[in-house]
């Protein structure tokens, strides 16, 4: 009666890895490779199906030939590259040092607890990033300040909204609307050299960079379904941003 227990533990561990990787923005092929690599070391053969919302795993015991099925919801989607690179690094250690399932589980717990950057630093850096965008498009320092202010306020607002677990697309729309409303004030009052540049750049921190690039990678890799899902997700986010901008434009009557 010990065999099924072991199966459950191993599959839980592998599914947790898959779910976390999918949630934090790894490409489909990377998830498959990582899970297969770890499962191989633990002494199992696996077949795996990864989709946007669930991970389905089939474990096959190499000795007895018995199979075991399980699936799990993916972790909530939000970019976290520390986790992706941490798990990838771990998967190599697992192979080299022949880890057991317990060790893997402990490492995953440790990685999940790994800290994010402090919120204020993120806020400041994102604000600076949008100011830099404004500069790259040819804005002056005054325009950069406008973009910085609008981004910082909107980013704080996004933080509040995401905490309340709003619908992600709706949240994006509202945040883009807020950001444009602040930057649009400068355009309306004609502050700065080219305030419309600040207006255009103050929403750029919302752009879906990871879904876009992952979508393309998945499509070329042959994971067409996942690529399409990610692509549509990216397009929806872009559409939400545009909707928010549109709303504030109508208010200021540009």
């Amino acid at each position: 009666m010990k065999q099924p227990k072991q199966n459950t533990v191993v599959s839980d561990c592998l599914l947790e890895i898959g779910s976390l990787l999918m949630g934090s923005g790894a490409s489909t092929n990377r998830i498959k490779v990582t899970i297969e690599r770890i499962a191989e070391t633990l002494g199992y053969e696996t077949e795996i199906l990864v989709t946007h919302k669930t991970v389905l795993l089939l474990l096959k015991n190499k000795k007895t030939g018995k199979v075991f099925n399980r699936f799990k919801k993916t972790a909530p989607h939000g970019a976290n590259f520390k986790l992706v690179s941490g798990i990838s690094k771990m998967s190599w250690k697992v192979v080299e040092e022949q880890w057991t399932t317990d060790q893997v589980n402990q490492e995953i717990m440790r990685l999940q607890k790994a800290t994010r950057y402090p919120f204020l630093l993120t806020l400041f850096m994102v604000g600076l990033a949008d100011a830099a965008f404004c500069r790259l498009f040819g804005g002056a320092y005054v325009d950069m300040t406008i973009a910085f202010t609008a981004t910082c306020i909107a980013f704080y607002f996004r933080h509040l909204l995401l905490k309340k677990q709003f619908n992600f697309y709706l949240c994006t729309t509202i945040v883009s609307f807020t950001s444009c409303l602040i930057a649009g004030l400068a355009v309306y009052l004609n502050i700065g050299v080219q305030p419309n540049l600040a207006f255009a750049t103050c929403v750029l921190f919302l752009i879906p960079g990871i879904p876009l690039i992952n979508s393309f990678t998945d499509l070329i890799d042959g994971n067409v379904t996942n690529g399409l899902v990610r692509g549509i997700n990216a397009m929806l986010i872009a559409f939400s941003i545009a909707l928010g901008m549109l709303g504030s434009m109508y208010i200021y009557n540009f």
């Binding site: 950057y117 965008f133 921190f205």
Partner: peptide
Amino acid sequence: WLAVAALGFAVLFNVP
């Protein structure tokens, strides 16, 4: 400025 923009997003994506 290119570097600053990239760093902002890097922090947002929580890179090591």
